[in-house]
Design a protein around this nucleic acid. Structure first.
Lengths: 341, 341
DNA sequence: GTAAAAAGTTATCGCGCGTAAAAATAATAT
DNA sequence: ATATTATTTTTACGCGCGATAACTTTTTAC
């Protein structure tokens, strides 16, 4: 065990009797060296625990294997889940993902993108803050670095956008609710930063019009990312003031619905579609926790897998082929019927 | 607007008529240059949008400003929240945090720590996977890089451990439950990877013994990090088989409790401490969503702020003073009384 | 066994910056 | 005006690796 600490590739190469360029070639593609030397290196790797410095590697490379993932709010399990999904796919594809959260703050989003440049990423998957984002800044960023947007669409930015078909989401759930009972009121926060919220409201209005029903939108105050609390407080207020025209409430998203359910509980309203229940509640997203609410939340499931998978594919295609296919891919949601509506 | 793109510090220095070392000094400490040149640089910084490359900066520095944050499972809002808290504190302290999630996989934890070395971090805040962690590997890592452990304690590793006083947690909630009604049964998963779970079980047993009550531990199968599902499925099974000796259930943690609440709901059991309720349920952690369960969950609140704050302080003290104070800091929890128990 | 192909070596830049010592310039004191 | 001190500049090297060109050695082919 002459385990003198190996400090760099030079020392490692010397220790195993090879030249540095050969070792370098090996790390960039193990098959680019002769099989015997490859095995030699691989064996030596277990004796001397040496690893090339990733950041030094990337410094002078024309194309790195880095991928930046930026989400607006990581404490939201939806983004945590989708980030996890994307990270795994990146790793499997041989890339090195680095995850960032804007924590709901536009300044931080800018800061992240700025420092992301130092990483020289091959590409970036960005779920922007939405309305609060510094559009012109992101625009510049997208010009320099292949960027696929997801979740939140910023018109004409990035090489592609991958998200959910909010039109279809709201249409689907409105149809279901109307078919199975009373037409729904729509519950939302007044100033959503995420543009999806606006599309969902509009889709609700359209769907209701299609069915010849009278729409009823209840907007409650609140901004930021504490959706459960907004849904809870707003729900208490709206229920107390009897603002809903119907006893069926479609929430703009699941987190709002979770807060609204808590408000219903506090008001002593029994939620569900069964006989004896006083109010039906539905959400949109199929949030990881929606299965475990009381009652379990009826919702429209985002296709996590499809979104992250397609976003990755698009990005990799762009990286490898330098295609700038400015397309928009929207995935449909699936109705998930549970006890709440 | 002679906005020729500035590519590096060399070009930037040349463009503003200074030498690179002077500019370099400025970026490492704006006060280390004359006030007039400092103002000169700061003004120029707005004309030419140049930023030093962070990774190149760190390459040849004895002490970087990088801080690694590693959590076991980021899709758990508890870790997401504490990570957010720590990240903000790092930024405010002038450090650059980078966040990693092991996604519950020991291999990935090792991989993360390995690649973290390339970052040359000044220090690392690590919440290990726990039982599943590669202890000897982490030990080596801690020898090389100042590391503060949090949440999950690995004996004798790192320069310090910061976490919650699980003894006190369980004692507090057991006392409360006994005082306010029937003594609790303890609901847990059979093979928790997090060592806190074991401490909580033991603390439950001790607390019950202290009060002269008969303990009742119900362990349900399941491993991994899908605690809600484990609590839900296990809860259904345990309730169905009538395994609980009492009608008061203390869950090992809030996520398990959330799943258990869903099981209770499905079984038609009304949860709460009010008259007419059939079962009381309590958790431990004060998970971000526990306020919004139906009914809201009575629990013991972890002191997020104190934990992250103290962990940061300890790490920075160690970085700056090179103190290796191998101490353990446990924060007490606060009883949060809500409707569920 | 010899030529051609493949693989490895040496050598030298380059990436974008930190760092340290020596030399030059500027600001302040006497 | 000279000495003193504070800043800045020059110069030079280092970090850990990628990339390329010109050779040399080994392997494969015939």
């Amino acid at each position: 065990m002459t385990t003198e600490k190996i400090r760099n590739m030079e020392e490692f190469a010397a220790a195993i009797g090879l030249s540095r360029p050969t070792v370098s070639k090996f790390f960039n593609d193990p098959d680019s060296v002769k099989k015997s030397t490859r095995q030699h290196i691989e064996a030596a790797l277990k004796t001397y625990d040496y690893r090339p410095n990733i950041y030094a590697m990337n410094q002078n490379r024309k194309l790195t294997k880095n991928v930046g993932i930026v989400v607006p709010y990581l404490a939201d399990p939806f983004f945590a889940e989708i980030a996890r999904n994307i990270e795994e796919r990146c790793i499997d594809a041989g890339y090195r993902p680095t995850l960032y959260s804007s924590h709901g703050e536009p300044d931080l989003e800018v800061e992240i993108l700025d420092s992301l440049r130092s990483l020289k990423p091959a590409g970036v998957l960005l779920a922007p803050l939405g309305r609060a984002s510094d559009r012109s800044f992101i625009e510049k960023f997208c010009e320099d670095i292949p960027t696929v947007l997801f979740d939140s669409h910023l018109q004409d930015l990035g090489i592609a956008f991958v998200g959910s078909d909010n039109q279809q989401f709201s249409k689907l759930i409105v149809d279901y609710l109307c078919r199975s009972g009373e037409p729904p009121s729509f519950f939302e926060m007044a100033n959503p930063s995420n543009p999806n919220a606006n599309r969902r409201r509009q889709a609700y209005l359209d769907a209701m019009a299609d069915l010849g029903q009278e729409a009823d939108v209840v907007s409650v105050p609140g901004d930021g990312w504490a959706f459960e609390e907004i849904g809870y407080l707003g729900g208490l207020q709206a229920l107390g003031a009897d603002r809903f025209k119907t006893r069926t409430v479609l929430c703009s998203n699941d987190r709002l619905a979770i807060g609204f359910l808590a408000a219903c509980f506090e008001k002593g309203l029994s939620v569900g579609h069964k006989a004896g229940c006083e109010i039906r509640v539905a959400g949109q997203d199929d949030h990881p926790f929606s299965r475990f609410t009381c009652p379990p939340l009826t919702t429209i499931a985002q296709n996590y897998d499809a979104i992250s998978s397609y976003a990755m594919q698009t990005l990799f295609a762009a990286i490898e082929d330098k295609v700038t296919s400015d397309d928009i891919k929207l995935f449909e949601g699936k109705l998930v019927m549970r006890a709440s509506a």
